[in-house]
Amino acid sequence: MRRSEFDRAVADEFGPRASYVVGDLTLGGIGYRTARQAIADGVPPREVWLALCAEMDVPDSRRHGVGRLEPRRR
């Protein structure tokens, strides 16, 4: 997962709460840091996304493959 995919996934899942979830919520799965801190510290966005999903009880069906753009049609 790229950072841009992480950003899209967070925005799609959490809508107007996205900035709070990324900047204020501490996540035990990544050392009790915020998502923003963890990414700045070099934690892979995929790992941060999964920790965020676990903390916020996002269903498994919405955890994988999110944030990707649809392929361009030729």
Rank of each mutant, 00 (worst) to 15 (best):
V48E: 00
E13W: 07
T34E: 10
R68Q: 08
A18S: 10
R46N: 06
G67D: 04
F6D: 02
M56S: 11
R46G: 10
E70G: 03
R63Q: 15
Y20P: 00
R62Q: 11
G67K: 06
E55N: 10
H64A: 15
R8Y: 03
E47D: 14
T26Y: 00
R17I: 11
E5H: 07
E47W: 01
V10K: 01
G29Q: 02
H64Q: 12
D24R: 09
R3C: 06
V66G: 04
D24K: 10
R8L: 14
S4A: 14
G31N: 06
Q37L: 02
R72P: 07
I39A: 02
G31F: 04
S61W: 08
A38F: 02
V58N: 00
D7E: 13
G23H: 06
D57T: 13
R72N: 10
D12M: 13
L69P: 01
P16F: 10
P71C: 15
R33Q: 13
V10N: 01
W49A: 03
W49R: 02
A11P: 04
M56C: 15
G67S: 02
G65N: 06
P45V: 12
D41N: 05
P71V: 14
P16Y: 06
A35N: 02
H64E: 14
T34Q: 09
G31C: 08
R74I: 14
E47I: 13
L27R: 03
G42K: 03
M1Y: 08
M56Y: 01
R73Q: 12
R3S: 09
V66M: 11
P44V: 15
M1F: 11
G28K: 01
V58Y: 01
R63I: 14
A40G: 10
G28P: 00
D7M: 08
W49K: 04
S19Q: 10
M1I: 13
C53G: 11
W49S: 06
D7S: 09
D12R: 12
G31T: 06
L25C: 12
R46D: 06
F14E: 03
G42D: 03
P59Q: 04
R33E: 09
A9S: 05
D60A: 14
P59N: 08
A54L: 07
P45S: 09
L52S: 07
S4W: 02
F14H: 02
R63M: 14
V58T: 11
Y32L: 14
P71T: 12
G29S: 07
V58E: 03
E55S: 14
P71H: 12
V21Q: 08
V43W: 00
C53Q: 05
L69Y: 01
Q37W: 00
F6M: 03
P44F: 09
R17D: 07
